[in-house]
Design a protein around this nucleic acid. Structure first.
Lengths: 339, 339
DNA sequence: GGAAGCCGTGTAATCGATTCCACAAGGAGG
DNA sequence: CCTCCTTGTGGAATCGATTACACGGCTTCC
């Protein structure tokens, strides 16, 4: 593959001049410029990004470490991150942590070794020494969706409090009083917050959230199934299950079906994180939708701001409730064709 | 960040010795080795992958260019690719081409500039000059899922012929005679093949595939909707629609619903590419399932074989039919709880 | 007419690793 | 005791770019 030296030889100039043309430095004669460009053309020359990175100490690459690419929420996040990064001249290397702190560390280490310019992380845990060291060492970093408390890193996330209040109002309006939640891992901020928001919203209606109605999940479908089975085995099962993410909601749906029960007649169901498929499930599932694309884009902008020396900003966007049929009678029956 | 020179100074040896220790070269005294390792430890030294790549001309990175990360099929493919690559010591940079040849070229160029060791591509078109040049220049490459005819590059894919025959047998057995297909882009091999396989299977039952029953889609949901509406407007609409991918099937489902019609009573539906959500749609959708994870892993192994000088192998794995309820009466009613 | 400044260009140092080659020390063998 | 090999080590070239510095040739101004 042709190098800058070959181009210089072909054009009859020095490598310095070639470099100047390529980085359109002002002081280069029109004559030299055209000769260099011609040489570039005939040789099919493309600058070696590796060599350039070594010299400039910039890779124009961002790292994105998320917990589960198969979760459509993170899939959409990854997509918007890549798009915005590309628009700003950066590439993205994605690491899938699978909710495992050791895998997360593996990816962070690997990305740091590759000297990525900045790191976008949705942490699976409270922060490993490695990650804290990286922050301390000054690696540009931004947290998306989840974050690590007490670490001075900008956070881009959605606030679901209002939407959870709307959800509880909706459920209460439908007559439900025994509400349960399938929580995410306590080590994640989203795991904790959603339970807290739910409890708070219940209190506004004088409702309790008993321990038995808090099931411990791990954001994967299987845990949703397990927890839901536990709920159904209770002497007094809940009337509604609120899953803290979409995958666990799916597991819950499976569990209900497996017993020959029906949603929402026997057990109502709602989920955090909306996805296109929720429109098509039987029944369509009521969910809290995050502005995922906006989050991804905002996160990239914050990170690139930080990388390029501008002050980065934390961003919090509101989530919103999308009512469908999985919690009971549609509140807006005019829209439905008769069953 | 500490460099190899700092380590050498700290350990009181030359950089050559440090490098030898790090690459565990045999001729290094036990004494020097321990001193170097101690220095590495105290400085928290990590080798600069960029510098190493420049010198060795290996990045230990693979490029993966796919057409749509939001499609769960490609999401799963990307995940298995990343897993297998990691197991073999490689990282993966993913490029999303969005079915657009220009974007595909952008990613290929970017990846080549970064001197990735090899490229995994699921081409959106018949092959741009850029891609053909890359092959000619000897860039290790493997095609996954789709390929470009006439190009000497190993292909890893699923063969759906047998499964399509099974599907047509299933449909015929249910009494359906007017079968239509929503095709993928003619520029993709999968787009063409699935139509060909469908037509062939129909012939075995003496059935025709008239032009009016071949709708041109682009593997995106919206096109599935549009084509299905066209089918429904025909003087004699089909009894079954077979969508060449999962997203178009979803669009078809939407279109049927929007008219107040029902699946499968008014129109039966089947899809190529199975996804977890198809179990939960209303009704559950009959689909042809590819061994996606196996494809991803096989593709990575073939590519790494090629990179490391072993002869790479093309791989074809069979897809299989998964019958659910979207084409009519369940052939195995014992399994169902009464409606 | 000479000093000062600008413009375009080339030489060479540099980034952080790997690796060829030279060389010193020490043991084996004649 | 001298030669020859082996073993461990360091010096320096190298990968392909960027960029500080120097320099030659011109213009400009006093």
């Amino acid at each position: 593959m042709a190098s800058i030296k070959d181009v210089a030889a072909e054009a009859g100039v020095s490598v310095a001049t070639v470099s100047r043309v390529l980085n359109d430095h002002p002081s280069v004669s029109a004559d030299a410029r055209t000769r260099v460009l011609a040489a570039v053309e005939t040789l099919g020359y493309r600058p070696n990004a590796v060599a350039r990175s070594l010299r400039t100490d910039q890779t124009h690459t961002l790292g994105l470490v998320i917990s589960d690419v198969l979760n459509p929420y993170f899939g959409e996040l990854a997509r918007s991150v890549e798009e915005e990064a590309r628009a700003l001249g950066y590439s993205v290397i994605i690491g899938n942590a699978d909710e495992r702190p050791d895998l997360q560390d593996h990816h962070v280490r690997n990305l740091l070794d590759r000297r990525i310019d900045g790191l976008l992380v949705s942490p699976t845990d409270g922060g490993s020494p490695l990650m804290l060291d990286a922050v301390r060492a000054g690696t540009p970093m931004v947290f998306v969706d989840r974050w690590i408390p007490g670490v001075a890193v900008p956070v881009v996330r959605a606030d679901g409090r209002a939407a959870v209040r709307d959800l509880v109002a909706h459920l209460h309006g439908l007559g439900h009083r025994r509400l349960a939640i399938i929580a995410g891992p306590a080590a994640t901020t989203t795991g904790q917050e959603r339970v807290a928001a739910f409890r708070e919203a219940l209190q506004a209606y004088g409702l309790e959230l008993p321990e038995a109605y808090i099931g411990q999940g791990d954001f994967q479908a299987e845990s949703g199934r397990r927890v839901t089975e536990g709920f159904l085995d209770l002497p007094e099962p809940p009337e509604v299950v609120f899953a803290a993410d979409n995958l666990m909601a799916l597991g819950a749906l499976d569990a209900v079906r497996a017993r020959g029960l029906r949603v929402p007649e026997d057990l109502a169901l709602a989920a955090f994180d909306d996805i296109p498929w929720f429109v098509h499930t039987d029944p369509p599932i009521t969910a809290i939708a995050q502005p995922t694309g906006d989050l991804g884009r905002a996160a990239v902008r914050a990170l690139v701001d930080r990388i390029e020396g501008r002050p980065p900003e934390s961003v919090t966007l509101p989530a919103r409730l999308v009512v469908r049929r999985s919690c009971g009678e549609n509140p807006n029956p005019v829209q439905r064709s008769t069953s």
